[in-house]
Design a protein around this nucleic acid. Structure first.
Lengths: 205, 205
DNA sequence: TGTACATCAGTGAACGCGCGTTCACTGATGTAC
DNA sequence: TGTACATCAGTGAACGCGCGTTCACTGATGTAC
């Protein structure tokens, strides 16, 4: 490793970390390159040794998020196999857990306006994460009689929407909106009711 | 009306309209007072004849949004009475319709960071809109046997989350994310499955 | 109808600020001999 | 082990820019007589 022992140690990652903190605090457009540099104890110009500019720094923060996100989703899915139902529920929980644990990454990924097609890297990771959710939905759908089975892409879209909505509205301290329930409970119960509606869970448990 | 025939005509509303367009295009933090003034054909300083500053302008845009939103939700609710189910479904549809028709207002209301407690006016209107959804959920819950009835606040939170998630993920041209289904269809089917899960809709229709 | 006056919406110049980015530089680090 | 040299991470000053906000002003409008 040629990284250690340099002037700073590992400025590149320090900048990403600072960016994540700032994005979490001030939102993606409130984030400034200069402030991230300052927080890393460095001149704004130093950033250009490691990144092409402001956008590139945000994109790298998002990339690291997608990487963890994809891993977490895959782990949740695999761990709960071979039960399609358990895998599906686990990916939903993993989604919320990720958003709660890494809010800076979540914002950089889904609210920063960074396109997933910015780099092949980003597109690949994002596809891997979303693909896991879709796979779980597809296996689950297989247990529903074909004539009353919604497309599995639609099922995964419903769950994604529910997850994202819970995160945005109830898992963040959004101003003036206080959650009447813990977000985990809200998501768990929401998904539960939804699955019952699909006929995959007994109507009374 | 003393408004007409002045220098500009009605600069106040012209500024709000410009702000809405800009907020829709560039997001709440990308919006600038100067650009709104320019778009209204006026010097930035002129804004201060009508608003306390940048934030006040955003707040007024949000207020007008909440006003329409509350009206639309109430209309949808009332129009579909006395059926609790029809009223509930109608408010969900009204939510999405509002977000689609007035994206600038929607962003100003839910993504600008403007607190609903900024003015009593805002709090009142927001409470009226959300209250309608909760009332619809409560009446709907009354049709479920008490022992398997989730709290009605939870039901309305689920629906709100699903609506918001669909809006954010699939109703906007968010970069790199293309929706596999029209958002209206997605929301309609999602709410349908959810209601079936609550036991309020026959399992097969 | 015509004149004098008060009002006040919008002007234009100015302010201090922090932004992203550039550039020639410096000086600590690692390497070759 | 010691010296000379190359590398290159980070510096510091400078840039042009657009921002939100202030202020004394101007000049079109509506009103009183």
């Amino acid at each position: 490793m040629s990284k250690r022992g340099y002037h700073h140690g590992n400025l590149r990652q320090a900048l990403v970390d600072a960016a994540l903190t700032l994005i979490e605090e001030k939102g993606p457009t409130g984030f400034t390159l200069s402030e991230a540099a300052k927080q890393a104890g460095v001149t704004p110009a130093a950033v250009y040794r490691h990144f092409g500019g402001r956008e590139d720094l945000i994109a790298e923060a998002a990339r690291q998020g997608y990487e963890m996100f994809a891993d977490l989703m895959e782990y949740a899915y695999t761990k709960s196999q071979p039960s399609a139902l358990a895998s599906f529920e686990a990916t939903g929980r993993a989604y919320l857990a990720f958003a709660r644990k890494y809010p800076g990454h979540y914002v950089a990924m889904f609210e920063s306006g960074i396109s997933v097609n910015r780099t092949p890297d980003l597109a690949l990771l994002s596809g891997r994460a979303l693909g896991t959710l879709e796979r779980a939905a597809a296996e689950l759908s297989a247990h529903i009689p074909p004539d009353r089975r919604p497309p599995s892409q639609m099922v995964s879209a419903h769950i994604w929407a529910m997850c994202h909505g819970v995160v945005e509205l109830f898992a963040r301290g959004s101003p003036g909106t206080k959650s009447p329930f813990p977000p985990e409970e809200l998501l768990e119960s929401g998904i539960g009711i939804y699955l019952r509606g699909l006929g995959l869970v007994p109507p009374d448990r």
